[in-house]
Nucleic acid binder design. Sequence first.
DNA 1: AATACTGCTTAACAAATGGTAAAAAAGCTT
DNA 2: AAGCTTTTTTACCATTTGTTAAGCAGTATT
Lengths: 190, 190
Amino acid sequence: MDKQLINYLQLFRPITIADGNIIAGYFKPQVFKEGDFLFEGDKVAREMFFVCKGVVRIGTVNDKGTEVTHIFYNENHLCSILQSFNDEVHTASFIQACCDTEVLSISKSKLLELYQQLPYLKELIDQLNQLNLIRKVNTRNAYLGEDAETQYRIFTMQHPDIALRVPLKDIASYLGITPQSLSRIRKNIK
Amino acid sequence: MDKQLINYLQLFRPITIADGNIIAGYFKPQVFKEGDFLFEGDKVAREMFFVCKGVVRIGTVNDKGTEVTHIFYNENHLCSILQSFNDEVHTASFIQACCDTEVLSISKSKLLELYQQLPYLKELIDQLNQLNLIRKVNTRNAYLGEDAETQYRIFTMQHPDIALRVPLKDIASYLGITPQSLSRIRKNIK
DNA sequence: AATACTGCTTAACAAATGGTAAAAAAGCTT
DNA sequence: AAGCTTTTTTACCATTTGTTAAGCAGTATT
C-alpha cells in the first residue's frame, strides 16, 4: 500500500528510496467497509487520506435533510476536506466509504512534521491539491445546463469505474436527483 | 487601480512600498464594456486579470449550443482560466465582461519575470488561486440538490451585488436554467 | 429457514422546468 | 424622436423530475 502512494507521488516528482521510506513511515493503513465513515463531520477534519483501493465520497446533509455528494475519490487520489484541513475550521461535510475501501491516512500534525523533514513535499502536496481542485471544478462545469439523463451519461463516461462500484443512491445524490429518477433514467438508457 | 491590487495582496502578506511599485509596474490597466470579451476562448489563456471594477464571467458553449457560466468574479478577485494558464493548453472557455469593467492584466511571461524578481509572489499567488478554487467549489456545492428557485435565492444571498449588476440571462446560464424560468422565478419571489 | 432491513425498481400523479412564440421593455444607433 | 436590436416578461403546452406508495430482491440477523 505504501508503494502505491510513493508511485503516485513519483508521477509528479522523483523521490529517492530513502525519502520514500520516510514518507511511508508517516502514513497509517486503514480499512473501511461500505458505508463506514472515514470522517463524520461537524468538527475539524484533521486527517488526509490516500485511497489505495475502493471509492469514498465527500458529502453533506442540506437544509432539507437530504444527503448530497460533493465528489467521489477512487484509487490513487488524495482526499481531504481541504478548507477544514488547512484552516482548522469546522465542517459539516463527511467522508464515507462507498464500497470496501483501503486508505493510507496521515494527521495534519504528522504531515507538518513530515514537511519539516522533507520540505519539498509541501510544495508537491499543494500542487496535487490544486490539480485535484481544478479537476473537481472542471468535472462539475461539464454538467452545467444539462438535463439529468445527460448528466448521468457524462458521469458514466468520466468515471466508468466509480459508476459500477458505488450505490445508485450515492450517484443520485451526486447528480442532485432522487434515486427514483436515476433508476428511471437507467431504465431508459438500456 | 494599482493600489487596489496591492491592498488586496496586503490582506494576505505584507508588501513593502518598493515591492508594491515593482508589482504595479507589471500590470496593465484595461477597460471593457458590457459584453466585451477579455478572452475569446479556443486558444491558450495567457493572461491573468485582477478585477478592479465591475463583474466578469467565465463561460463556455456546451454541446447543445447553449452558453453556460462557470463563475462570476467581481471586484478584488484574481481571474484566470487556471488550467489553461498553468499548463498552456487550449481551452474552450471565454471571459466576458458582464457590465462595464476595469481590470489589471498581466501576461504569463511577465508574471514569470515578476516571480523571478519577487520569488515570494509565486507562493502568494498560488495560495490565492487555491483559496479561489476552494471558494468556487464550496459555492457550487451549496446549490447541489436544490430546486431552481432555491438556487436563485442562494445566489442572491451569496452574491447580492453581482445579482443586481449582471444580465438575467447570465445568471440563468450560471444556474443552468432558461432565462424564461428565471424570469418566472423572480416573479414568484416578489 | 424465517424475519427484518436496506436498496432498487416501478407506477400514478403532482409540481417544476423547458420549448416555443409573442409582446413588452430597455438600450443603441441613426 | 424614430427605428432597430437585444433583453426580459408572459403565456401556453410538452417534457422532465419530484412525491408518494408499493412491491421486489438481496443481505444480514436471529
